[in-house]
Amino acid sequence: MTHIRRLTPGVCAALAVGILATWLGGFAPLIGGPIIALLIGMLLTSLRGTPAGERMQAGAGFTGKRVLQLAIVVLGGTMSLAGIAELGARTAPVLFGTLAIALTSGWLLAKLVRISRDESVLLTVGTSICGASAIAATAPILAAEASVIALAVTAIFTYNLVAVFVFPWLGHLLGMSQEAFGLFAGTAVNDTSSVVAAASIYGAEAAQIAVVVKLTRTLAIIPITIALSWWIARTNKTAATASGEVATKRKRPWQLVPWFLTGFLVAALAASLGVIPAAWSDGLHLIAKTLIAAALAGIGFTVDFAVIRRAGFKPLGFAGVLWVIITLSALGLMWATGWL
């Protein structure tokens, strides 16, 4: 009960903003409820001058992470596994081609820019795969310091915000279909919340497709972390074995699969088998959209502008160059494979 009471203020505030933003989004569909919720949250934070206070912080953080993940599970109830498999086959060249280019570019860029090994690795996997989730999975393997992790998350979050604002506009400028934009957002935006927000602004169909593409991309965490563990053990055996604490923090490969990916697939299976009626689809979409807006409001409540200012140019510059490379390679591969 104490934990629930601690979460209640932030959760209720984020849900209230999410409901309001979803309603307002109906009058401004090009902007959409999620981005309105994010803007309201950030506006309230900027007026306050600091992120949410202690009474709000826990609930806002919970909403920004867990409620967003719940929304992805709800979206799974509107899809079929057959459609997911078919979409995966069609998007694979763009998705995995972009991933390969991103990882290679990050490795080459790290040789040109004087930043630490941990910074370059965290920024590369975070930008290439799935933002903070990839950073959280790889940081224990590197035994990265908290300040390095914070810098990486902040740098990537900065470009997530840019993507949410710019990508829907770019999609309309290029005349992308709902399917094409879903692929673009799922491939070129690195954090789940920003992928869902950008795609939801573009349209419901785009959001469905973006979630599938993004979750497929998230699975790359498993081989990447295994390869990174092997690389660390081979090139720096002393660092890999000196700390028992580091070793105990490492996760098994199956533990790296996010719970909401499993939930999404279970919900999609239920929809495919008719356990979740097709008539519920519109209602589930509305629920998911409202939960997404609430999650973005929670993220807005916890934005620390001071940390962003202190991040410095190098991590931001590294992540920015890599983000541009990913965006351009995604567009190029989409054009080459007939999506544009």
Rank of each mutant, 00 (worst) to 15 (best):
V74Q: 03
L75T: 15
L75E: 08
G76C: 01
G76F: 00
G77P: 02
S80T: 15
A82G: 15
G83I: 12
I84S: 06
R90P: 04
A92N: 09
V94F: 12
V94Q: 05
F96H: 04
F96R: 01
G97R: 06
G97F: 10
T98Y: 10
T98I: 12
L99D: 07
A100E: 11
I101T: 11
I101F: 14
A102C: 12
L103F: 15
L103K: 12
T104Y: 12
T104D: 09
S105R: 04
S105D: 06
W107Y: 13
W107G: 07
L108S: 11
K111D: 10
R114S: 13
I115V: 04
I115P: 01
S116W: 04
R117M: 07
D118N: 05
D118G: 04
S120L: 07
S120C: 06
L123W: 05
T124W: 09
V125R: 05
V125G: 05
G126C: 02
T127I: 10
S128N: 08
I129A: 10
I129T: 15
I129Y: 12
C130D: 05
G131W: 08
A132H: 15
I135G: 06
I135D: 09
A136V: 02
A137N: 07
A137Y: 14
A137Q: 10
P140C: 05
A143F: 06
A143D: 14
A146K: 14
L151Q: 06
A152S: 01
A152N: 00
V153H: 08
T154N: 00
T154H: 00
A155H: 03
A155C: 05
T158E: 05
T158R: 04
Y159R: 00
A163Q: 00
V164Y: 06
V164R: 07
V166P: 00
V166W: 01
F167E: 04
W169V: 15
W169F: 11
L170D: 06
G171S: 01
H172A: 05
H172F: 01
H172W: 02
H172M: 03
L173M: 10
L173F: 06
L174Q: 01
G175R: 09
G175I: 04
M176H: 03
S177F: 15
E179D: 14
E179W: 13
A180D: 00
F181R: 00
F181W: 01
G182E: 02
G182A: 03
F184W: 09
F184K: 00
F184P: 01
G186P: 07
G186F: 11
T187G: 07
A188V: 02
A188Y: 02
V189Y: 00
V189R: 00
S193D: 11
S194T: 05
S194C: 10
S194E: 03
V196W: 11
V196K: 08
A199H: 02
S200E: 13
G203C: 04
G203S: 04
A204T: 15
A206E: 11
Q208Y: 14
A210H: 10
V211A: 14
V211D: 10
V212N: 03
V212R: 02
V213W: 14
K214L: 07
L215N: 13
